[in-house]
Nucleic acid binder design. Structure first.
Ligand SMILES: [Mn+2]
Ligand SMILES: [Mn+2]
Ligand SMILES: [Zn+2]
Ligand SMILES: [Zn+2]
Lengths: 150, 150
DNA sequence: GGAATGAGTTGGAATGATTCCAATTTGCAA
DNA sequence: TTGCAAATTGGAATCATTCCAACTCATTCC
């Protein structure tokens, strides 16, 4: 069900792992491919189900391990909303998340650099932030079904 | 250990509860007082410990219940960071949170209305958001020990 | 080659915050 | 008083995540 990684994506995976002294494995390839295949912010369980179609023996523990590894080497971001299961996002561009309360879907919202700047500027002296997380909650008129893009 | 609610705070509690058809109880008074006494974004467990000093028989379940009730009637906000325990905040003014990775402390960051506006404006058409949450993560030069105000 | 080494994987057990539930207790109202 | 409905309580159940010990597999070293 899951298509192989493109040459480019595979290289990206390989290099990112290499920088933190880790290797590409069949499991990591598939988990990464699953994330790229459908960018709908899947939970670990979602990833597990999808990845299993290509690799039936894959274990849930390994999915947790792979995702943790990817987060560690900056290949993907974790996305948390309230107390729900953690979701994973391979979009590395600065962006916020919009959580549709009706459907549970999570959408990426592009974040202009000037907004990020103005946010940083509201921090009092002495506060140094490496990370800013912004999440919206509400309803959206769930438009285009959103293709199963790359 | 915990001082009683001021006349003003008690009224506030009473009215907020009333609007959603609920009543003031000794447990709710104490839990609310605990939140107001030390605005350090305590976890449920923190609140439980502090409240027990004034009411030894108080149960953890009740603390969960009270806090849920307060969130429901808009008296306090929940604050989540990553996968950690939920924290509670009685500051109703629009504000972001800064989580100090060194100490674990959570600080309120005032949020100017124009920032909120500009954030709303980045939402594509069709997205209606009722809530925006902003959280910073980083280090702060932990200044003034922050008084046990109010 | 064949053993040693070490990262990665696996299944299942352990954790821990939160939720559920059934039994009491409480505050009012009939 | 008696009866109710809401609130409280203690303990069990949930469930995402973490932990762990055994196993696999590729690579390095005689
Ligand atoms: Mn969607
Ligand atoms: Mn502090
Ligand atoms: Zn995203
Ligand atoms: Zn706050």
């Amino acid at each position: 069900m899951i298509q192989k990684l493109t040459e480019h994506d595979r290289e990206n995976l390989q290099e990112s792992l290499a920088t933190s002294g880790q290797k590409v494995t069949p499991q990591r390839e598939i988990v990464f491919a699953v994330l790229l295949a459908k960018r709908d912010h899947p939970t670990v369980e979602d990833v597990f189900q999808r990845a299993r179609e290509s690799m039936p023996g894959l274990s849930l523990a390994t999915v947790y391990n792979c995702l943790e590894t990817f987060v560690g080497c900056g290949l993907v971001r974790q996305v948390n909303h309230e107390r729900e299961s953690t979701r994973y996002c391979p979009n590395l561009a600065p962006h916020a998340h919009f959580r549709d309360e009706a459907t549970g879907h999570v959408h990426d919202i592009e974040l202009p650099p000037e907004i990020i700047q103005s946010l940083r500027s509201i921090l009092p002296a002495g506060f140094n932030s490496e990370t800013i997380e912004i999440s919206f909650r509400g309803r959206s008129q769930e438009t285009a079904p959103r293709s199963t893009s790359n």
